[in-house]
């Protein structure tokens, strides 16, 4: 995997896990890579991985059980909040971009409508 070289790696590790949770790739109860395996596989400093995992634990997204590994513990409520936040951010940058380009709300809405179906199954 290639990380964005311009942003802290530990934040990107957290974002990748959040994304996997949002898309349902990872579900509560799933075991995730051990810190060491993660570090080895993606050639990231073990302390950086540790920092990311620690923050995810603090956020209540995962839990590490001694000698057993790290497991996803995310609740439905957390997922909803995360989804809202992610949508909010995407919306903000979209609106900002369209405003910068000089589009009116009406024009944007038309464009969204036109493209909605096409993109629906995309990505």
């Amino acid at each position: 995997m290639d990380f964005d070289a311009t942003r802290p790696i530990y934040l990107q590790i957290i974002e990748l896990y959040k994304r996997a949770l949002l898309t349902g790739e990872l579900k509560s109860g799933d075991k995730i890579l051990s810190q060491r395996n993660y570090a080895e596989q993606y050639k990231v400093n073990p302390n950086t991985v540790q920092r990311a995992y620690r923050e995810m634990e603090a956020l209540g997204l995962v839990e590490t059980l001694r000698g057993q590994g790290t497991f996803v513990t995310v609740t439905k409520k957390q997922l909803r909040t995360m989804k809202e936040e992610t949508a909010e951010n995407a919306l903000h940058s979209f609106i900002y971009e369209m405003k910068t380009l000089g589009f009116t709300l009406a024009a944007v809405l038309t464009k969204v409508q036109e493209n909605w179906e096409k993109e629906a199954n995309g990505r």
Binding site: T6, I9, Y10
Partner: peptide
């Protein structure tokens, strides 16, 4: 610290 430098500068270490 590498991550701290990235955060402060918003750039890659190479940059």
């Amino acid at each position: 610290d590498a991550d701290e430098l990235r955060r402060q500068e918003g750039k890659s270490i190479v940059a």
